[in-house]
Simulated assay, not measured.
Amino acid sequence: MLEVKGLRKEFGQLVAVKDIHFALQPGDIFGYIGPNGAGKTTTLRMLATLLEPTSGTAIVNGIDIVRQPEDARPLIGFMPDFFGLYEGITVWEYLAFFAEAYNIPPRERKQVIENVLELTDLTVKRDTYVETLSRGMQQRLCLAKTLLHDPLLLLLDEPASGLDPRARAELKELLREIGAMGKIVIVSSHILPELSDFCNKIGIIEKGELLLWGDVDDILRQLQPARLLTIRCLDGADKLAEWLRKQPEIVNVQVVNSTVEAQFVGDDEAQAELLRRIILDGHRIATFSETTMNLEDVFLRVTKGEVA
């Protein structure tokens, strides 16, 4: 597992990361969310042992990254936002170079490279020169390089930056597969839609401070304890709104553009029962749906728009 304990980084008078704490288990995909300049990259560089914390530490599978950085590094794979790709070499040669750098035994390298090429769907590009690859393929190649030594913890800094919609969708699917392999994945981003489909945990950082972190569903329930029901009635919104205001499970009702929006307190069974009663009372319902908060709503709710 990964346990972050009071991680802090100061650059002179600037506190880039302020004593953050969180813990993740194998299989967790953690969306690390924040505006530019919030401290995301600084956090990842400290976890990757590339930047020494001012105070605090992190424990990866029982190994302290500050006291035992050499022992921690084999467990960590770091993919920076901007990465160098050497020109004049093929995809296979690029991966073979890093496989040797990671001290993968020579007799195992060929199979390891084949495995990461297959996982990242780059097998057909094995003899292609790296500088001729598209941006999306280069991202895949950097991820393949990051996976060569089979790290437990993957740190991905803005991995979808500059990708087209199809490449983003393919990257999401690849990250789901990696999470299913039992690895811990931390994905930093300020583009929320790319995280909402595959992260099971999130953390929101602003001005170096971790405002909240935890399971996505738990956070949504905390911030939106009542369900928001959107109902369109063929008999008119005002009549239905008046009926709903008399129901004990409804805490607030408003009419918006001929549609009723009602805040409902109850589970799925109670929601189904409410719909049944609405229909039995003679209201003709055209649409009945529940609107839930998304990561963008959460981000706007808890942040103030400040940067360090």
Rank of each mutant, 00 (worst) to 15 (best):
L275Y: 15
A101W: 00
K304D: 12
T303W: 10
D157W: 04
T146R: 03
P225D: 03
R227A: 14
E290A: 00
R45Y: 03
E206S: 11
G39Q: 09
L171S: 05
L47R: 00
V307I: 14
A167E: 05
Y102V: 09
A262G: 09
E158W: 11
T49D: 12
R140S: 08
E158T: 12
N61W: 00
L147V: 04
V91W: 07
E177V: 11
I89A: 02
A48N: 02
G84S: 05
I59T: 05
N61T: 04
V251P: 03
E206D: 11
K110C: 05
A167H: 02
L50Q: 13
G84Y: 08
F198C: 01
L229F: 11
P74I: 14
A226Q: 13
K304P: 03
S161C: 04
R284V: 14
I186L: 06
D81Y: 07
K5I: 12
L95Y: 08
G56K: 05
Q254M: 13
L210Y: 12
Q271R: 15
R109L: 08
S188G: 08
F198Q: 02
L192C: 07
M137L: 14
V124D: 15
T54H: 05
S188N: 03
E118L: 12
S134C: 05
P26F: 06
L280Q: 15
S258K: 15
T54A: 10
D71I: 02
S188Y: 07
L122F: 01
P69M: 12
R126E: 06
A160W: 01
A23K: 15
P26R: 09
G266W: 01
P69Q: 11
G236S: 08
T90S: 15
E170H: 10
K125P: 01
K9W: 01
G203I: 03
L234A: 15
K18G: 00
L14F: 14
K183Y: 13
L275D: 04
Q224V: 02
S289L: 09
G62P: 11
A237H: 13
G266R: 11
K125E: 09
A237I: 10
V256T: 14
M293A: 14
G182N: 10
Q138D: 02
L95M: 05
F97H: 09
A180H: 14
T120V: 15
K239E: 01
T120S: 10
A38K: 11
A286M: 04
D64A: 05
K145A: 01
P225L: 03
K145Y: 07
L51K: 10
F299R: 03
Q263S: 09
I250C: 10
C199L: 01
L212D: 02
P225Y: 08
L47N: 04
F78G: 05
V265E: 12
E3T: 13
T43I: 05
I184H: 03
T230M: 04
L212N: 04
